[in-house]
């Protein structure tokens, strides 16, 4: 029974996401609205973690398998991929290094600044 209720709750937020997607004229996927609404509901205590935890964990576990059909679709979009292959590999290599380095550096700098001011406040 608990799984039925939990899945129902997740489907409700999926539907609310679809609803917002239809109402708001932006190219934002409905699943993102659903994600944000559920997060908000958890923060405000409208929904408690125990009410959907097991089913959410199950869905997160099967999530990667759901991309297999799309990936196999490369079979069909090979023609579109071919001219993109070299620039895409270059782009991916360079940007992965930069994204990891820059996001890490920014977080590190702000963390250290915070520790420093906290340390001074204690003195």
């Amino acid at each position: 029974m608990q799984y039925l209720k939990q899945f129902g709750l997740i489907l409700l937020f999926s539907f609310l996401g679809e609803l917002l997607h239809a109402l708001i004229p932006l190219p934002v996927p409905g699943s993102i609205y659903g994600l944000l609404l559920l997060f908000l509901a958890l923060c405000l205590g409208i929904v408690r973690l125990q009410q959907l935890q097991e089913t959410a964990k199950f869905l997160l576990q099967v999530l990667p398998v759901l991309f297999v059909p799309a990936g196999v679709g490369l079979l069909e979009s090979w023609g579109e991929l071919k001219p993109l292959l070299l620039p895409a590999i270059l782009l991916i290599s360079v940007s992965t290094v930069l994204v990891m380095g820059i996001s890490g550096r920014v977080t590190q700098r702000l963390l250290r600044r915070k520790k420093k001011t906290e340390g001074e406040a204690k003195k």
Binding site: G17, G34, L35, L49
Partner: peptide
């Protein structure tokens, strides 16, 4: 299952 599973990322985010 894509949309419900993506919505479930909210649980990960919250935790």
């Amino acid at each position: 299952l894509l949309t419900p599973a993506t919505v479930s990322l909210a649980v990960l985010l919250y935790e």
